[in-house]
Amino acid sequence: MNQRISQDNNVVIQSLTQIGNCGLFLLTLLVAVPRSLRYIRETIRQLWFVGAMSLTIIMVCGLFVGMVLMLQLYHVLSIFGGTSASGMVVALSVYRELGPVVTALLFAGRAGTSITAEIGLMRATDQIDAMELMAVDPIAYVATPRFLAGLIAMPLLTCVFCAMAILGGHLVGVTWLGIDNGTFWSNMTAQVDLHTDIVNGVLFKSLAFGAVVSLIAVFQGFATPPTSEGVARATTRTVVASSIAILALDFVLTAFLM
């Protein structure tokens, strides 16, 4: 029993230590931002890698999320004769919650894991040490550009996701289930608020999620033991920690922004 409590305590202490180290790493990243500006080409290269290369998965998933959401809502709302509101409900759900959250989860799985694995392998093959010895600061050259790229890419990807979800909703609702096209768009534009839904819902949340996922991915890459097992574990931790952080942060942000 005592051993179990001791093990639980160790897990708690290790988790808190990781969070503390991650916070210190964030400070190091932010301090390195001015130095990393000279590596702007590297930031753009990473933006292409984590942003443009994630477009396919974001677009396909956005389309299907919008389609399934419309399908479910149509059947529920038809009970109350409110199918004309389906488009508006799809839009609000996507802007306020599903867009930023699902994009962030997909981003963590697609880009976050590859960032962690790439940095972890760079450490395992001494590439990070080699940079240090060539008098190139790896935080400014490797970590900060990837962090900034994630921060910039996430809001853009979220906008794409939302657009594709609305398109999916339109395809199912208007083209397949026969909701009037004018009603679909007019209800949506009448109810969606620029500040509450777009700025707070899409932009603010996605920026926060982008920062958290990129930070966790880069931190795990740098903190991992430079072994194949270490890299594998770090990659898994990136997905797990990012998913928990996204959902917990979503609750906190929603509570404050509503």
Partner: peptide, 16 residues
């Protein structure tokens, strides 16, 4: 100082 020092790693450590 490191700009004046070359270092050859055992595994070469080339940027992949």
């Amino acid at each position: 100082l490191r700009e004046g020092i070359g270092y050859l790693f055992q595994n070469s450590a080339l940027l992949t």
